[in-house]
Design a protein around this nucleic acid. Structure first.
Length: 741
DNA sequence: CAGTCCCAATTTTTT
DNA sequence: ATTGGGACTG
């Protein structure tokens, strides 16, 4: 026994060992960036099994991505040798809240008024359904954007609020009334379609646990040890889930870092970290403050910056590594210049650092494009995480929609999606009549379609197409309901004529038809791979897999392939690289345009940059451009205000290899602790020697004369620019008032 | 009903 | 600049 203990604790420092061994009370581990969090989790699982004799099925670990779960599984398995097995459908369960939620919803579907063959609706499905609901309510989708309503619904579900839980006056409220009513209608439609959205995957388990004491006891009994990673990013509903499961009989361990909370917009509540000790009585708190990842200068820069946040736990990360290189701050003339710098630098570094140990991190996915073009030209292998994801491509979703309809004939969304894809003569008129009838009878569209012709609901060309469609789906259901996923997809693509239609397009010279066909092949290939990895995996499992896939989970090539990584900072959470390029460190990205109204938002933006910085092990480059073209011509840009918060002696200003004199002067620090963008609100006569981008847009105003654009926001008629005039100083005004000089 | 053309909005981050 | 949606025409 002592052997096992010693072996597990061997490579841990005192704090880590404490966190691993502490197993008689609930535990909150405050783990700063790079302090060996994953190591603590894996060792803790090993400890539970080997030292405390926990049974595998008594342990549940919740991670932020499926990939992280896989890594922990792998590492635990390696530590424990053959003594521990991870059967796919057995405990212990390592995965995201959402995948765990789906298991529970499936298992207890009958109690929730659902059928086990349910459909997971993604973001796009959700918006489409909202749009349908709004139309039915006679609300103009232009007046009330479906996306906004979808965000409202998500917000409610993040707080565990179903329509019946909303305060009565919300339904009559001028601003919220429509949204609340749409939510109620949406939820009904979703249930009728035997569908669940992401929010349901969290809320329904909580409902089960709250309303069914026997189910709660069952899970409390089974899940003796519950570990939650990235705890700072759990939302209210997820926290309620933990509270339902936590009992004196079991042990809840959460690991998190409030400085790395970057999902507030998705409902994450850092406050959960504060509440934990109160809600889980007797909980211990252990802090991990030894940073093993980054060299001294990098850590000093990141720490000084994050210390500016008001709402945070005081903590000091101690570097164990040497000082290392300073953080290099780079000023580029424009976005192309920035790319040139990064590529030149990484080509040089490649001589000593493997490409897979380098990453380019940006604020928005759109920023990857300029890099892609250059990297392709230079033949540097790269991979992009996130962005338009594979399973969200139209052709892939079409194929999956057929499969979804085969599994769940109540799935109206999929029905509408593929009914006339490829075209089979069923147009708007037929669909309208079908929808109307379905509403009247309270029957799913597919069921209505079956007798729509006989009842005269649909006539003519539409009737023939509809019959054809119903026959197709019926045949699939009869033959393929239990077939392997790849067989189903192959059959769908050929027998529906989908592939043929695309091939025709290709023959007629459509450029993207080829790419789409390739994507379909890739889809079938990924289904085949999936079947090989999991025994007995049918189409249902594949649809689940696809529905819960995260962008980080889906990466072309394995981790050890020689490729540069490009990703948003959000996607980089939990990863580390020897060399990190943080690009676009400008006002408008850090903080983002849409996030500079409240102090809370600005603090989250600061955390985002902090996460980016702390991914770096050996070298960190931070770059910004003086002008950047986003849609129509170059815009003047200012360095991020956060750059002014970096300590002088940890950074290296000026661009290595560039002509001298390219010193950097970041935005002046905010005044008096206020987080307002100082450069925008500066009084006209301000003598602050702020920098005007060399090739910023020059403009003329009828009254103020000539000036230079230093900021901009909005689009179209609402577009406003900030102009520094020679005559009156800096003024913010509608863009239409000035003309290019 | 399908295909084409034109106009508008879009770009924050994602399970 | 690209893309999606809506309107118009064949």
């Amino acid at each position: 026994m002592m052997d096992a203990e010693a072996r597990i604790l061997e490579k841990l420092n005192a704090e880590q060992a404490e966190a691993v061994r502490h197993c008689d009370r609930h535990l909150l581990i405050l783990a700063g960036a790079g302090t060996g969090k994953t190591r603590v989790i894996t060792h803790k699982v090993a400890w539970l099994v080997e030292v405390l004799g926990a049974r595998p099925w008594e342990i549940m670990a919740v991670t932020f991505t499926n990939k992280a779960a896989g890594e922990i599984k792998e590492r635990v398995a390696r530590m424990l040798g053959g003594s521990f097995s991870f059967e796919k459908n057995d405990w212990p369960y390592f995965g995201t809240f959402h995948s765990q939620g789906l298991r529970m919803v499936r298992r207890h579907a009958d109690l929730l008024g659902l059928d086990g063959d349910l459909t997971i609706c993604d973001d796009e499905d959700q918006v489409a359904l909202v749009k349908r609901v709004l139309t039915e309510m006679d609300v103009d989708p232009k007046q009330v954007p479906p996306k906004q309503v979808a965000a409202f619904i998500d917000g409610c579900k993040n707080r565990f609020q179903y329509p019946e839980d909303l305060p009565d006056d919300w339904y009559t409220d001028l601003s919220r009334g429509v949204q609340a009513q749409a939510y109620r209608a949406y939820q009904k439609r979703l249930r009728d379609a035997n569908g669940v959205d992401f929010g349901d995957l969290i809320c329904l388990p909580v409902k089960l646990l709250k309303e069914h004491p026997e189910i709660r006891s069952f899970y409390q009994f089974h899940v003796k040890y519950l570990l939650v990673d990235e705890f700072q990013d759990t939302n209210t509903a997820q926290y309620l889930w933990l509270k339902e499961l936590g009992s004196p009989k079991n042990l809840v361990t959460v690991v998190g870092d409030d400085d790395q909370s970057i999902y507030r917009w998705r409902g994450a509540d850092v406050g959960n970290i504060l509440s934990f000790p109160r809600d889980f009585p007797d909980a211990r708190v252990v802090r991990l403050e030894q940073n093993y990842r980054s060299t001294g200068h990098i850590l000093a820069a990141a720490s000084a910056m994050i210390a500016r946040n008001q709402r945070r736990h005081e903590k000091t990360l101690r570097p164990v590594r040497e000082e290392g290189h300073r953080v290099v701050l780079v000023r580029a003339v424009n976005e192309l210049d920035e790319v040139r710098f990064v590529v030149a630098r990484l080509k040089k570094l490649r001589e000593t650092v493997p490409l897979r140990e380098m990453a380019v991190l940006y604020r928005t996915n759109a920023q990857s494009r300029v890099f892609e073009e250059t990297l392709q030209r230079e033949a540097i292998p790269y991979r992009i995480f996130g962005g338009i994801r594979f399973y969200e491509r139209a052709e892939v979703k079409d194929a999956l929609a057929y499969a979804r309809l085969v599994v769940n004939p109540r799935d109206d969304l999929s029905f509408l999606r593929v009914l006339n894809t490829p075209p089979r003569g069923v147009g708007g008129v037929s669909v309208d009549r079908l929808v109307e009838r379905s509403g009247m009878l309270g029957m799913p569209l597919y069921a209505c379609a079956r007798d729509a012709v006989r009842s005269g609901t649909v006539k003519g060309k539409g009737a023939r197409g509809l019959d054809e469609f119903v026959a197709l789906i019926d045949a699939f259901r009869a033959e393929l309901a239990d077939a392997p996923a790849s067989d189903v997809l192959r059959a769908v693509l050929t027998k529906t004529g989908y592939r043929t239609a695309l091939e025709d397009e290709l023959a007629r010279g459509s450029l993207d038809a080829e790419a789409r066909l390739e994507n379909l092949d890739e889809l079938v290939a990924s289904a085949t791979t999936f079947e090989h990895e999991a025994t007995q995996a049918g189409i249902r499992d594949f649809l689940d897999h696809v529905g819960l896939m995260t962008s980080v989970d889906l990466t072309a090539g394995s981790d050890d392939t020689e490729m540069l990584s490009l990703m948003s900072v959000h996607n980089a959470k939990g990863l580390e690289f020897q060399v990190v390029f943080t690009v676009g460190a400008e006002e408008g990205y850090f903080p983002h345009f849409n996030a500079r109204t409240s102090d809370d938002e600005v603090e989250e933006e600061r955390r985002l940059l902090y996460v980016a910085f702390t991914r770096a092990k050996d070298r960190l480059y931070v770059s910004y451009a003086l002008t950047r073209s986003r849609y129509a011509g170059p815009e003047g840009r200012m360095p991020s205000r956060f750059l002014a918060e970096l300590p002088e002696d940890a950074i290296d200003r000026g661009r290595p290899g560039a002509p001298s004199g390219s010193a950097v002067r970041p935005a002046p620090p905010a005044q008096g602790g206020s987080l307002k963008p100082g450069w925008m609100l500066r009084p006209a006569a301000s003598p602050v020697p702020s920098e005007v981008p060399a090739n910023a847009q020059r403009v003329v105003h009828p009254a103020f004369g000539v000036g230079v654009v230093v900021g901009e926001e909005g689009y179209g008629p609402a577009r406003r620019v900030t102009v520094r005039f020679q005559s009156v100083g800096t003024v913010k005004l509608p863009a239409r008032q000035v003309r290019p000089a």
